[in-house]
C-alpha cells in the first residue's frame, strides 16, 4: 500500500504563499527528504501528488490535505523524516495509508471551516444586524475586481454558518457549489477588520454528517 493521505498545517510566513508556490515548496522538500515519491511517466515527469482545495493566500491552515504515491512501501514514521526538511510553518500532522479506489480529495471535499480573529467590534448591534441580513437573504451579490475584470458573484449559497464567540468568528463554508467569498470580502460585508484567519478543517459533508477526508 503505497498511497497516503496527509494533513498539513500552515502557519507563520508560509500562509502568504500562493497555492502554486506552496506546491513547489512542498515538492522540493519531498525531494530533499529522499523519500521514494512516484512520478508520472512521459517527457516532463511530475510528482504524483493530488491536492485538496487550494488554500487562500494569507489564510493559515490546520488541516490542508493531499494524496501522495510512493514507488515502494515506506516506514510508518516517514512523515517525521519529511518534517525535518519542510520549511518553517509547514508541517505534516497526520498521514494514513489510502485504500485503492478512494475518491479524490477534490471530488470528495465540499465543506470548509474557518476561524477568523477579528479586531474589537465597536458596534455590536450593527454587526449582529449585518450577520442577520446576510443569513436571512436568499441571495447576496458582491462585486469582485481582479486584474481580469469585474465580476458579480452570488456568494449566499456558500455561506452555511456564521457564529461569533468573543472576537472569533466561526465560518462554515460550502465548497463546490456557488462562488465562495474571500475572507476579506466577508469582512467588508460585516464591516469588521480581520486580524488573522485560519482554515481549521476541510470536510466531506454528506447524509451521515461531516467527516474528515
Amino acid at each position: 500500500m503505497n498511497k497516503w493521505r496527509l494533513s498539513l498545517s500552515l502557519s507563520g510566513k508560509m500562509v502568504y504563499l500562493s497555492h502554486l508556490d506552496l506546491l513547489a515548496s512542498f515538492e522540493r522538500a519531498l525531494r530533499r527528504s529522499g523519500l521514494p515519491v512516484s512520478y508520472s511517466s512521459g517527457f516532463n515527469p511530475h510528482m504524483l501528488i493530488s491536492w485538496g482545495p487550494a488554500h487562500p493566500v494569507g489564510v493559515g491552515g490546520d488541516n490542508e490535505c493531499c494524496d501522495l504515491v510512493f514507488t515502494e512501501p515506506v516506514d510508518q514514521q516517514w512523515p517525521q523524516k519529511l518534517n525535518t526538511v519542510l520549511p518553517d510553518g509547514m508541517r505534516i500532522n497526520k498521514a494514513r495509508p489510502l485504500e485503492d479506489g478512494a475518491v479524490s480529495l477534490m471530488a470528495a471535499i465540499n465543506y470548509a471551516q474557518y476561524i477568523i480573529e477579528l479586531e474589537n467590534i465597536v458596534n455590536t448591534v450593527a454587526f449582529d444586524a449585518a450577520i442577520e441580513r446576510l443569513l436571512d437573504a436568499d441571495s447576496y451579490v458582491i462585486e469582485r475586481i481582479s486584474p481580469k475584470g469585474r465580476k458579480r458573484l452570488d456568494i449566499r449559497s456558500a455561506i452555511d454558518t456564521l457564529k461569533l464567540d468573543d472576537n472569533l468568528l466561526y465560518f462554515g463554508c460550502r465548497l463546490g457549489g456557488g462562488p465562495t467569498p474571500k475572507i476579506s470580502e466577508l469582512a467588508d460585508i460585516l464591516g469588521v477588520t480581520v486580524c488573522s484567519a485560519r482554515r481549521t478543517g476541510l470536510f466531506i459533508d454528506g447524509n451521515n454528517g461531516r467527516m474528515l477526508p
Partner: peptide, 13 residues
Amino acid sequence: LPNVQKPAQYIGG
C-alpha cells in the same frame, strides 16, 4: 500583506 499583490515577496523566511 492582505492588500498587496504577491505578498510572499515581502516576507523573507
